[in-house]
Amino acid sequence: MFKNIEHLVRLAVVMMIGVLGFVILRAAVVPHSFGQYGHYRGAAIGEIASRPVAFAGHETCEACHTDVVEQKKLGKHVVVSCEACHGALAKHADDPSSVLPKKLDTAILCARCHEANGAKPKGFPQVATAEHSGGLACDTCHQPHHPKIETAEIKTEGKK
């Protein structure tokens, strides 16, 4: 009887070797942290979390630039965090003396938020910059950290 199914037994052996090879390969190749938290490589969480940051966060800025904090407190821009205008400055925060922030062009910068646009919320202060200032840099009149122009200042400016 065995003689007549010998070829099938041989086939079964070949298949078993295949399955065994697969099981061994699997044990050897699957990353160790796979399945630590779920069906994924647990170590991936740490790897993703370890990416360096580019934006330092306003609390970091405020630790040193206390003068600007005081200035901002008086105006509407108190809610705007530093890097919204100044850009990503984690490198500066880490090495303040050698990495210096770029000088900003207020004619472009302010317009990003304040250029008039029908889709902007109605209460938000916006101007058509071309008419409003004719291309003049905004900080000619406005102090960005405290943008509201006091009436007295305008009068003195006008008299000059």
């Binding site: 003689k3 007549n4 010998e6 041989r10």
Partner: peptide, 19 residues
């Protein structure tokens, strides 16, 4: 491809047919 078995007796072929 024979896997080392050359048995093609009627009985073995019958097994193949059934399988």
């Amino acid at each position: 491809l024979t896997l080392g078995s050359t048995n093609v007796s009627e009985r073995s072929l019958h097994v193949d047919e059934r399988l």
